[in-house]
Amino acid sequence: MAYNWHFEVLLPYWPVFVNGAIKTLQLTFGAAALGAVIGLPAGIGRESRIAPVRYVMTAYIEFIRGTPALVQIVWIYYCLPILTGLQLGAMSTMIIALGIHEGAYIAEIFRAGIGAVDRGQFAAAYSLGMSRMRALRRIILPQAVQKMVPPFVNEFANLLKVTTLGSVIAVNELQHSATGLISVIYRPLEVYTALAAVFFVITYPLIFLAGRLERRLSSRV
């Protein structure tokens, strides 16, 4: 049974994909930024010498990594307003939920990056009289960041795909825009195929970049 493809019917609707892509990128950058802001202190805090800080950060990271992003989004969107009276818009919900979600993964990237720096660097920094925070900021993180770039770009590419979950709470990112378009032109095969193509076009450069960076950074050592 051969299907007759009619991609040309999509042409007039190109703005749907462009606007969807813009929303998707807004979600991705917003959540990545929030994730980095949460992830840095969480990753450092997980190794803190202060026990309560360590416990709280570990609990956050493990809990988030142990629950699906979809459940986190739905919980913040539907449960949080009932419990607190605080109703966030769909877009804000997505950025906050994915930011908290990414924070846990980025925390682990920070932790692994810091762990990959030679212990002697801490010893040298401490021997100069530096505090742990100053040693991290001046000596350890600048070296760790190099090691963190490839996994961070990878995580960014993952996040870009996870934003499709926004469709369940009617955020007009790519997935949701595509579903909407189908109900107008009744061409699911063309629309979903085009959707996949658009995602690939956005995501592949990132994956390519991550691979390049990985090779360049490893050859430098």
Partner: peptide
């Protein structure tokens, strides 16, 4: 105390002079 390590532990992301001024300027 000034400490010198078996494996030097210089800061690899800094030049020699930056290594030397790190303690005086930061600490």
């Amino acid at each position: 105390f000034g400490m010198v390590f078996q494996n030097f532990n210089l800061f690899p992301h800094k030049t020699v002079i930056e290594n030397v001024i790190e303690g005086p300027t930061q600490v």
